[in-house]
Amino acid sequence: MATAKETILWRIRHATRDVPEAESPEDVPVKRGYRTEDEATREEIVSRFAERTAEYEAEVHRVGHDELPRAIQQALKRRGVRRLVVPPYLPKDWIPDGVEAMRDAASPQLTKEELDESDGVLTGCALGIAQTGTIVLDAGRAQGRRALTLLPDYHLCVVREEQIVGLVPEAFARLEEMVKSEGRAVTFISGPSATSDIELNRVEGVHGPRTLEVLIVG
């Protein structure tokens, strides 16, 4: 008896039998003429990223490298964060004194309850996208697993200027290699968690963090 796989593939081959046997998909290239690189200057791209991220009601600050630890400390203080979730490989000088660092690791992992009860999480990111005000996480260094940026109610994210790309296709091009070789999970975050299911009224933080704050370092 044919397996379901054989059945489905046979149905498809039968239906597409007019496609020449020797023809491979590469023989019929799909033209891709849309913009794949932003021609704007670095400064324009970084400012656009700051502007578009802020449009999502995220708080955005641009700071110099030296000012970063202080900016982090101030942000956490404003928010009243005492118990801070810290992903693996987060630079040590990012964690201010007087804050309880809840470190997550491959083992032991913080429990879901611990994450749920924390005051917030501090992470880096993989990329920023100026066109859409997006932060990209790929479970790489200083980002941690996805639950870390979902269960806490406040997410403070540090983006280095050189991580910011202009256009969405540039982000996919940069991520392609990692996805092919390592297959890590990738998340594009464009604004805070939100729903409009009740009479189209926007409610933030149905599931993910209600507040996103971004520090751009350069």
């Binding site: 693996p88 859409t132 297959g183 890590r184 594009f188 968690s193």
Partner: peptide, 24 residues
């Protein structure tokens, strides 16, 4: 669909949690 530049959470998952991976 929703008049957004991108949807808030656009996720890409490639298989189960890999060796030494923290997530998935």
């Amino acid at each position: 669909g929703t008049g957004q530049k991108l949807t808030v959470y656009t996720n890409f998952i490639t298989g189960p949690r890999g060796e030494g991976e923290l997530d998935g």
